[in-house]
Computed example of a mutant assay.
Amino acid sequence: MTDSFGTQTGGAPRDEEHPGSGPVIRDKRRIDPETGQPRTPQTAPEPAPGQADGDAGADTGVTDAGAAGDDAHPDTALAAERLEEMRRMQAEFVNFRNRTQREREADKDRAVSSVIEALLPVMDDIHSAREHGDLGEGTPLRAIADKLEVTLERFGVRRVGEVGDVFDPTVHEALMHLPADSPGVELPEGSTEMTVVQVIQPGFVVNDKVVRAARVAVADPA
């Protein structure tokens, strides 16, 4: 409080009486105005142990909270969910494509097998004509038989059952078992297994499916 002459009569003491209570002015200029040289930055005073621990805990809490907030962000969870759905749909599509391909091939084999079953009498007649020598070179029937067999091979049809083949129960049906010394029986030299010595009726296979097993006569080596 001051009187009419501006003299302080009460309240807080003046700065002259308490020089340490006035405003503090810090010179933060990086260049010394007197020397023109850059000033060395002053190191901030180290905090007290208790204060340092508290600050460190506060900083750690903010960082962890931010990291936890990023991990739990709704957009991140939604993106992970959509990615998992996309992978599941891709796997289902691959399985569907493979299953469709297998079914298509199976349908093709069934269709070809049905045609072969219908043509079995014709194929048997061709085999009989070949056995009796009616399919000599230059005969019209020989040309027709060759074209038919070549066409069927394009669809995976294979004839099985030849004299000299090792007996295979998956494609051969043994109707007769002959001794090795029977008249007309000739085993390949060095045979050690049961061998086909006569083809009574040829068999046919479509890819890996047996349409009809070859009916044969077999003999064991002596």
Rank of each mutant, 00 (worst) to 15 (best):
T35R: 00
G36D: 00
G36V: 00
P38H: 00
P38N: 01
P38E: 00
R39K: 04
R39N: 03
R39L: 02
T40W: 03
T40L: 11
P41I: 01
T43L: 09
T43A: 05
P45K: 12
E46K: 13
E46V: 13
P47F: 05
P47Q: 07
P47N: 07
P47T: 05
P49D: 12
Q51L: 11
A52L: 09
A52S: 11
D53H: 10
A56E: 09
A56Q: 08
A58C: 08
D59W: 02
D59S: 10
D59R: 07
T60L: 04
T60Q: 09
V62W: 05
V62F: 08
T63D: 07
T63A: 06
T63F: 02
D64K: 09
A65F: 06
A65M: 12
G66L: 04
G66S: 14
G66D: 12
G66M: 07
A67C: 11
A67L: 09
A68M: 13
G69W: 12
G69F: 12
A72F: 07
A72G: 15
A72L: 11
H73M: 13
P74N: 08
P74S: 03
D75P: 15
D75V: 11
T76V: 12
T76W: 10
A77S: 11
A79E: 10
A80Y: 12
E81H: 10
L83T: 14
E85C: 02
E85L: 01
E85K: 00
M86S: 14
M86F: 13
R87E: 01
R88C: 08
M89Q: 06
M89V: 04
M89C: 05
M89R: 04
M89D: 06
E92L: 01
F93N: 08
N95L: 08
N95M: 09
R97A: 13
R97E: 09
N98Y: 10
R99Y: 01
T100C: 02
T100A: 06
Q101Y: 15
Q101R: 11
R102A: 06
R104E: 03
R104C: 09
R104H: 07
E105R: 02
E105G: 15
A106V: 02
A106R: 03
A106N: 05
D107G: 00
D107F: 04
K108P: 01
R110G: 00
R110E: 01
R110V: 01
R110C: 01
A111V: 00
A111Y: 00
S114A: 09
V115K: 00
I116L: 01
I116V: 02
E117R: 05
L119S: 03
L120E: 05
P121D: 03
V122E: 14
V122D: 14
V122G: 08
M123Q: 06
D125M: 15
D125I: 15
I126R: 10
I126Q: 10
I126T: 13
S128P: 15
S128I: 06
A129I: 15
A129F: 15
A129K: 14
A129T: 13
G133F: 14
G133E: 14
L135D: 09
L135G: 12
G136L: 15
G136P: 15
G136K: 15
